[in-house]
Design a protein around this nucleic acid. Structure first.
Lengths: 215, 215
DNA sequence: CGAGAAGTTGAAGCGTGTCAAATGCAGTGG
DNA sequence: CCACTGCATTTGACACGCTTCAACTTCTCG
């Protein structure tokens, strides 16, 4: 286990901004956060979500400066480890080292799936696919079960993830609701017909490579 | 330097298919290739290009099976290294090891930019951005100069990369041509006004992290 | 209770997809 | 050398998914 300072941050604030020079490694202990990129005119694209157990900035320190930003969604707890200490730890533990390779490879595989999502699927399929991915990941870490999960994302978040306007996200969610594929009560999201949803989204969880994984 | 078998492959064939189990590491020596993913109904998304000097499947061996495919565009030469041998080599060379970390991080950074591209830019901006990226990468390895490059991609390739129909790619290229932003003569692509093109695409090469890099 | 944020809805317009047909281009065989 | 074939490119007409704008409603929380 890696030790380091633990920080608690409020919801909806930037954790790191584009252009800063990273010097620590962060591990999500609780809550939801995301990574985003921005165009000069303000258009925003979310390029990844962090759930408990995820690593935020693995070895990003080798790069000179951040080409993206990190922000919290809910209140979050982060473990922060200085790079020097981090280097020292992985040097002594081959298990940890390969765990970090894993993390990197899964990040890449997920980004490839997101490219497929953004480039080829319709708005309906994209959102359905994202919901499948999030549920699957949460279930894996024991934070969701029985086709139910806490859902802290706004429709604007969904839009910025799926490259769709907020208004259209709303219409898509309505359609999913009318088809009885999702059910949203407050912040609790449930899937009355997960099979049909996965089918609609052409969701194949293999890209998440859930088989094994180190810690 | 890593030694291994060198293979020459003809243009337009699959190198590895989804589902196969990877057991070698491939390095591009010459030519162009790409990585793609596919939906069950056949929609295809290109998720990365390989140019000379690029690594195709870094440590993918840890994963059970490929979640995507590789295909050649031009005739290509590949250096192939068995995983065992590869492991042995990086174990002895910290320089190489960090070079591979680099490669991984740049792959990730590029995929994030692609997500931004697919999610937020218009078809015109997307294609302009892709052209800027390819030229920049080719220039880096000395395979392009003076705002000119060999361009082996078809309009269908461009479409499958940018999430745009082939017909619309054609219209976009026409617009770029009429605006005097690109000039295509046979397989030679040139940029009479690179500044304006980069501006149109909001192309900021920092994500490619060209600063340093090992080999 | 009030105020700001998030969600909802309708109408109109635009970017892009689809379909279909024509043109250009390169390789092949007669 | 030319006709033939198949693939890439080009163009027009039309359809549709999604965006934009604007107003309204519903939540959330101090």
């Amino acid at each position: 286990m890696i030790h380091g300072r633990v920080r608690t941050l409020p919801p909806r604030i930037d954790i790191v901004r584009e252009g800063e020079t990273p010097h620590i490694m962060r591990l999500m202990l609780s809550g939801w956060a995301y990574r985003y990129k921005q165009l000069p005119d303000g258009r925003r694209q979310i390029v990844g979500f962090f759930l408990p157990g995820d690593i935020c900035d693995l070895h990003l320190s080798i790069l000179e400066s951040m080409d993206h930003s990190l922000a919290s969604i809910t209140q979050i707890e982060l473990a922060e480890v200085e790079n020097d200490m981090f280097e020292a730890v992985i040097a002594t533990s081959p298990t940890l080292k390969s765990a970090f390779w894993w993390d990197n490879l899964i990040t890449i595989a997920t980004l490839r799936e997101w490219a497929l999502n953004l480039g080829q699927r319709t708005a309906l399929e994209r959102i359905a696919h994202l919901l499948c991915e999030l549920y699957t990941r949460l279930e894996k870490i024991g934070a969701a079960a029985n086709q139910q999960m806490e859902f802290p994302l706004t429709q604007m978040d969904l839009g910025e993830t799926c490259g769709v306007s907020t208004v259209h996200v709303n219409r898509v969610l309505k359609e999913l609701r009318l088809d009885n594929l999702i059910c949203l009560e407050g912040r609790l999201l449930s899937f009355p017909a997960m099979d049909r949803l996965k089918d609609l989204a052409a969701f194949d969880p293999r890209y998440l490579h859930l088989g094994s994984r180190g810690r």
